[in-house]
Design a binder for these strands. Structure first.
Lengths: 153, 153
DNA sequence: CGTGAAAACGTTATCTC
DNA sequence: GAGATAACGTTTTCACG
């Protein structure tokens, strides 16, 4: 991956609605090679897909909660049921298995604390959990879907 | 916002590359009213923008680290300098001011632990921090940019 | 890689019912 | 809201330098 590809990815990560012509102009290529590069990166799976980003406040999910989960049930069957239950909750937008003290970390978006409580109850009744702790975000200072392009080979 | 709008948003959050015709067919409208609804939601700012999502592994940023920051400097000047420094780091993809024990939470993406250490050093030399603790994600079980549409009015 | 051009396709806008 | 249509722009493919 060369400088041109990296520039194309920077553009597409910022704004995927731009025309091919506009992208080509910005990266310093003509449309044909620019188009060929985008096709190649889509075929390779570097570019996974294009999505629309919505305004959380206007969608009434302005409250972000990070939920740390600890378990005492370290077996595959439990993990499978827990993961399936969490993935099915639409308010859970991120879900990681962690190293260290905390076993799982969830990011949840809801309109208010009452709505969070309903999600929390759904969570704890899905499977047995050892410890669940919630931390509320007061302010979203940075949120980007754009990955750094500097490490790509 | 009615059921049609919500269905349109579900589609666009999944795949913004689909043609208007395909979206209209899926939500059960003809192209004209579907197009008008999308235009309206873009004008209102409900739909913020369209972006390309890249594969983290192929971009060599497969390692996700959550960094919890505590400070003893609770003044506006410090906060401004800290936020400006963090926002400028491309590896930081999410950055929240939190309630409770932790003052700030960052999500950082890097290729490996050595690269994380370089970001960590950049972070701690930017401003004085009371406590910084890192938690590594072992597995990304769910990650979506799609907000739940059920709360929108 | 670049240019240029043609065909195919999708979008936008308008109008009628 | 549906459906039709026309103008317009973009995407895609191609041949050639």
């Amino acid at each position: 991956m060369d400088e041109f590809d990296r520039k194309i990815l920077l553009c597409l990560q910022e704004n995927a609605a731009d025309s091919l012509e506009a992208i080509a102009a910005r990266v310093g290529l003509s449309t044909s090679p620019c188009w060929r590069r985008i096709q190649k990166m889509e075929a390779q799976g570097v570019i996974q897909r294009r999505v629309a980003l919505l305004d959380p406040d206007r969608m009434r999910v302005g409250v972000t909660v990070f939920v740390s989960v600890r378990t005492n049930r370290h077996n595959a069957d439990w993990a499978e049921r827990f993961c399936a239950a969490v993935v099915a909750i639409p308010e859970v937008v991120e879900f990681y298995r962690m190293s260290g003290e905390i076993d799982y970390l969830l990011r949840i978006v809801v309109p208010d604390i009452a709505a969070y409580d309903r999600v929390y109850k759904r969570l704890i009744q899905s499977v047995e959990l050892y410890d669940v702790s919630s931390a509320f975000a007061m302010e979203r200072i940075k949120y980007t879907t754009a990955l750094p392009v500097t490490y790509a080979e």
